[in-house]
Structure formats: structure tokens, C-alpha cells
């Protein structure tokens, strides 16, 4: 697994990664039970494919250096989930309740996903702004005022320009 600095959005991303894998495994391994509970009978294959998507996203989040695109992927997945769950609210089946609870939970996770993705994006943008080195002169006064401040220095004889190569300065 790629090592990342553990700041808050990173920790949140990691949590979401594991969550993706967990949910994904349930969807993949028990689509029938799930479809029953969510009033989505007949959609077992769809649920199983969502599971594959969740697991892949989870691995992407945990294994990549930069989880941001994967988290945005989760946000897109959340939209699909919400759409699918909404169909479970139809009809008079008493299982509607299950779909309603699941929908509320997905909406909650969606909020977390969006929060996480946007704070990762904000951090990336903040890093992209170059720091301002325009005041790092190292000199106590503006360079113009420091010009020649070290003229007291005597260039050693072995490093002096030979007389014929020196600039000719007309006598004042």
C-alpha cells in the first residue's frame, strides 16, 4: 500500500476506502439477501456489479499515492446507488422501509465523500501555488543599496585581471 502523509483528509479517504471494500464484498457475495432487504428483487446482478465497482474503488483509494480521483469516483458511484435505491421506494411493499433507511445511509456517506474529495482538491490547489521567494534577498537593504558594500574586499593577486585586460577608464 502506498505510504501517504496522515493528514485528516488522508485518514478520511482511507476510512472510505475500507468502507468501499466492505460494502462491495457484501454486494458481491450476498446480492440476493440484499435485494430482498432493499426491495430490489430482480436487480441481483446489478447489485453484484456495484459490488465489483465498490471493491475496485476501495483498492484504488488505499493503494494509490493520490486518492483524490478515486474519491470523486465514489461520489459518482453514490449517485448511481441513490438512483437505484430510489426505485426501491416504489410500490406498497413493506420492504420500502429498508430501502428508505439504506437511502438515508447512502446520502450520509455521499456527504462524507464530497467533503473528502473537495478537501483533497483544495489541498492540491494550495500546493500548486508557488511560494513567494521575491523577498528572499538575504541582504539587509535593497540590492541597489547594497551594491558595492563589499568593495573593501581586496581581490588576491592571483585572481586579479591582468592590467592589459582591464577596462580602460578615461581619466576624469
Amino acid at each position: 500500500m502506498a505510504k501517504r502523509r496522515n493528514t485528516r483528509p488522508d485518514a478520511l479517504a482511507q476510512g472510505l476506502g475500507w468502507f468501499s471494500i466492505g460494502i462491495g464484498l457484501v454486494e458481491m457475495l450476498a446480492p440476493h439477501a440484499l435485494a430482498r432487504g432493499l426491495n430490489l428483487r430482480g436487480n441481483e446482478r446489478l447489485l453484484a456489479s456495484y459490488g465489483v465497482r465498490e471493491v475496485a474503488t476501495g483498492i484504488g483509494i488505499l493503494a494509490s499515492r493520490d486518492p483524490e480521483p478515486w474519491i470523486w469516483g465514489r461520489v459518482a458511484g453514490d449517485a448511481l446507488d441513490i438512483g437505484t435505491l430510489a426505485t426501491g421506494l416504489d410500490g406498497h411493499d413493506d420492504r420500502r422501509e429498508g430501502a428508505g433507511i439504506a437511502l438515508a445511509a447512502v446520502l450520509g456517506v455521499t456527504v462524507l465523500d464530497v467533503l473528502c474529495a473537495s478537501s483533497l482538491r483544495a489541498r492540491r490547489r494550495a500546493r500548486a501555488v508557488p511560494p513567494d521567494y521575491s523577498r528572499r534577498s538575504g541582504l539587509p537593504r535593497p540590492p541597489e543599496a547594497m551594491r558595492g558594500a563589499a568593495r573593501d574586499f581586496e581581490v588576491p593577486a592571483d585572481m586579479r585581471t591582468p592590467e592589459p585586460l582591464r577596462p580602460w577608464v578615461p581619466a576624469a
Binding site: 508557488p130 511560494p131 513567494d132 521567494y133 521575491s134 523577498r135 528572499r136 534577498s137 538575504g138 541582504l139 535593497p142 540590492p143 541597489e144 547594497m146 551594491r147
Partner: peptide, 11 residues
């Protein structure tokens, strides 16, 4: 760019 900026800072 940032090295050029630091160079200008130095005169």
C-alpha cells in the same frame, strides 16, 4: 520560476 524569483530578489 521560483529560482528566477529568488535571483531577482538578490538584485
Amino acid at each position: 520560476p521560483e529560482r528566477l524569483a529568488m535571483a531577482r530578489a538578490g538584485g
